[in-house]
């Protein structure tokens, strides 16, 4: 588990480094999924960085595609492409655009950016694998703001009806969206109860506890229903000044003030763990 914790720290460091050097990016929601990505790419998912299209791989769709930078960090750390490439984020001609793109980046299996669509695409992948009798699993990460999209709830209805036990949705429930706090705009209410009522196998966890996330995925794998993991997270997690505050969705220019201290602090934490 210490290794997963270190991996999560490294994801946060790479993410903050690339976005602050570039001067723009979706910091808050990238930081909140670092732990989930660490568990997925550090332990749970089957993949081969040297052969990203390996047939035996599990799939991840980052439905909240604006958080590509966190996923790129995980992929680079695991060797899908050189770490230096992270610094090309959003530059003309890059393979790393702000929203994930399956035609550009090794290790990205679905193009997202228009919220709500990715999770349906993931459902399609799970369904398609099942129809072909294949054992691969499909994961999707959605945002709590994203979960206000009607298309998400179409997926919520369809997956249990089609018996997709090879499908696990992780909700990055960081309680914030672009315009503010989700509960002030349109609350998801008791989202676990809702998912359960739709026929999902539901686990409610601390989304920054790698052991708990790992355990939750194990349970979902054992279940014969599609899995729904409610990750209780903090938007901006890892950069204390940006945690759960307004204005942490996307940062530009001067809003990155203080990032050097935040990075130094994260690097120190990483050293202490080694």
């Amino acid at each position: 588990m210490d290794e997963l914790k270190r991996f999560a720290l490294e994801i946060r460091i790479e993410t903050l480094n690339m976005l602050s050097r570039h001067g723009f990016g979706h910091v808050g929601g990238s930081l909140s999924i670092a732990d989930a990505l660490a568990v997925l790419y550090g332990k749970q998912m089957r993949y081969d960085p040297k052969n990203p299209k390996w047939e035996g791989r599990d799939y991840l769709v980052l439905s909240k595609g604006h958080c590509g930078p966190a996923l790129y960090s995980a992929l680079a750390i695991k060797g899908f492409f050189p770490r230096e490439e992270l610094l090309t984020i959003n530059k003309l001609g890059t393979r790393l655009p702000s929203h994930t793109d399956k035609n550009l980046t090794p290790g990205i299996d679905m193009t997202t950016g228009s919220l709500g669509q990715g999770v349906s695409c993931a459902l399609g992948m799970a369904l398609g694998l099942k129809v072909q009798g294949k054992p691969n699993l499909v994961y999707a990460i959605i945002g709590d703001g994203e979960a206000q999209e009607g298309q998400v709830w179409e997926t919520m209805l369809i997956a249990p009806n089609k018996g997709l036990d090879n499908f696990i949705v992780l909700l990055d429930n960081n309680r914030q969206q672009l315009d503010g706090f989700t509960n002030d705009i349109s609350s998801l209410g008791d989202v676990c109860k809702k998912a359960e009522a739709f026929g999902w196998f539901v686990v409610d966890v601390d989304g920054h506890d790698v052991a708990a996330i790992d355990q939750a995925i194990e349970e979902c794998k054992r279940s014969d229903k599609p899995g729904f993991i409610n990750l209780n997270t903090i938007k901006g997690k890892g950069w204390p000044a940006k945690e759960a505050v307004l204005g942490n969705h996307a940062l530009r220019g001067a809003a990155f003030e203080g990032v050097d201290e935040a990075l130094a602090d994260l690097r120190r934490q990483l050293e202490e763990m080694q």
């Binding site: 206000q148 969206q177 672009l178 705009i185």
Partner: peptide, 25 residues
């Protein structure tokens, strides 16, 4: 949910009841 990108909170300040943010939908 992209009201902030068009200065929506300014409208909200003056007319809180006539600023309706439906969320992402």
């Amino acid at each position: 949910d992209v009201g902030n990108c068009i200065f929506g909170p300014e409208f909200q300040k003056v007319f809180p009841d006539r600023y309706i943010n439906l969320g992402l939908c």
